[in-house]
Design a protein around this nucleic acid. Structure first.
Lengths: 128, 128
DNA sequence: CATGGCATGCTACAACTGTAGCAAAACGCC
DNA sequence: GGCGTTTTGCTACAGTTGTAGCATGCCATG
C-alpha cells in the first residue's frame, strides 16, 4: 500500500496533465474552460477529479495568494517514459522500449525533450 | 451504449487473452493453472473475470461437449493494433502509429504477424 | 455594509474492477 | 446408485473512477 507507487493517470487525468504541462499553474476555473468542455464535464466533476489528482500526487495545489492553482507534480518526460515502459513491456512484451526517436513526431515533445526521453528510457532500462 | 464499442482489456484481462492466443481454447481450470498463480487470484476470482470477459465479448464460451472452454474472440493483431493506435494517438499524440517493425522484437508476434500488424495499422489510419 | 457571485469543502451515487464465497448441479468412479 | 470432486451459477463487497449537487465562506462592488 505504499501510496506513491508510481501510478499512471487515467484518460481524463492525462488530458489535464497535458494542459498543465503546457500552461504551468492554472486555477480550477481556467482548467475547466479548457478541458471540461471537450470532456463534457461539469465544473463540479472537474473539481473532484482535480482534488483526487492532488491526493494521488499527480498534481500539487498551490494555495496562498488568491485563488488556488493547480500544477503538474509529475514531469512530462518522466511520466511519458513510464507509460511507454509499461506499454512496451506489459502489452507488447518488448525487452526494451523503442528508441525515443520513434516518437519524434509527437505533438507533445520538443526535440530536446525527445533526447531527454531517450536518456530516461535507457536509464529505466538498467533497472530491469 | 452500443455494447460493442471496441473496448480495450484491463491488465489481467490482457494476460488471459495472451494465454488464449497461444493455447486456443481452455477450460477455466486450465486457465487458472496458468494465470491464477502469477496473478495471485483464487479460482473464484478467475472465473468471475472470465465470465465478465464473455459479457464484454472479449472471450467466447464454448459449451457442449463436457467442460466449458473459453477462447479469445478478439484477434491478437487486431487488438494489439487498436491498443497501439490508442496509445500513439491519445497518449503520445502522434498522427500515425509507428511502423510495425518497431515492435519486431515483441515476444508476442511472429514475423508474419508483424506484417499483418503493419497492414492493419495502415488500414486503421485511413479512417482518421 | 449588504448582496451577488465564484471558490472551497463535503457528500453522494452509479459503473466498473478486483476479489472471493457459497450452494446446487453434474460428472466420474467404486 | 451413492459419494466425493469439479463445474457452474449466484451473490457480495470494497476500491476506483466518472459524474455531480449542495452549503458555506470569502471577496469585490455598489
Amino acid at each position: 500500500m505504499s501510496q506513491d507507487e508510481a501510478l499512471l493517470p487515467t484518460k481524463p487525468e492525462l488530458e489535464i496533465l497535458k494542459l498543465l504541462w503546457r500552461r504551468k499553474a492554472l486555477s480550477a476555473r481556467e482548467i475547466a474552460d479548457e478541458v471540461a468542455a471537450p470532456l463534457d464535464w461539469s465544473y463540479s466533476t472537474l473539481r473532484t477529479v482535480l482534488e483526487r489528482m492532488v491526493e494521488k500526487r499527480l498534481l500539487k495545489r498551490l494555495e496562498g495568494e488568491g485563488v488556488n492553482r493547480y500544477a503538474a507534480s509529475v514531469g512530462k518526460v518522466s511520466l511519458l517514459s513510464r507509460m511507454i515502459e509499461d506499454f512496451s513491456g506489459r502489452v507488447l512484451e518488448l525487452d526494451a522500449a523503442p528508441p525515443a526517436v520513434t516518437f519524434a513526431k509527437s505533438k507533445l515533445l520538443t526535440r530536446s525533450e525527445i533526447e531527454e526521453l531517450e536518456r530516461t528510457l535507457r536509464k529505466a532500462e538498467q533497472k530491469s
